[in-house]
Amino acid sequence: MLARIYQPARNAMQSGTGKSKVWVLEYAPESARSLDPLMGWTGSDDMNSQVKLSFDTQEEAVTFAKSKGLAYRVDIPKTRKHVLRAGGYGENFATGRRETWTH
């Protein structure tokens, strides 16, 4: 059974970094999902696919996986490059603007 350890990306609708510092351990699916022909629902007999464990640090998640004898894969997150403009947001409302304000 393979476990994946990763740090989830922040929601596209959130500007801050809240709840994005945790590390998550989830199990890789062992069997394919099946489609119910009558209702169209998807289902699976794999109970571990519903399990998501949260940890404060990557080391805690790796230690847990090792203590349970799980094969694991750690996905290191990519760091985000900050976009900084020369004047910043306040530059839009400066009284000494040379160009006219267009939106």
Rank of each mutant, 00 (worst) to 15 (best):
E60K: 04
R73H: 09
T100F: 07
R85Y: 14
V62N: 01
D75W: 02
T102V: 10
L84V: 15
A61I: 01
E91P: 00
D45T: 14
D46Y: 02
G43K: 03
N92E: 09
V62P: 00
T63C: 04
R80I: 14
E60N: 05
P77L: 08
R98N: 05
E91K: 12
K78A: 10
G96F: 13
H103D: 13
S49L: 06
L38M: 11
G90M: 06
N92M: 10
K52P: 01
F93G: 02
D46Q: 05
R80L: 10
N92A: 12
K52D: 04
T42P: 00
V83W: 09
V51A: 06
K78R: 15
L84T: 15
G88W: 03
R98D: 02
W101G: 03
I76R: 04
H82V: 15
N48Q: 14
N48Y: 13
E91C: 07
D46K: 03
V83T: 12
M47Q: 13
D45Y: 03
D46L: 03
K68W: 05
L38K: 14
T100R: 13
V83I: 14
W41P: 00
S34N: 12
S67E: 10
S49A: 13
G88P: 01
W101F: 10
M47K: 14
I76Y: 03
G40M: 05
Q50G: 08
A86Y: 09
G90A: 11
T95F: 09
A86E: 10
T95Q: 14
P37T: 05
T42K: 11
T57A: 04
K81E: 14
G69K: 03
D56E: 09
A71R: 14
D56G: 04
I76S: 04
Y72S: 00
A61L: 01
G96K: 12
S49M: 06
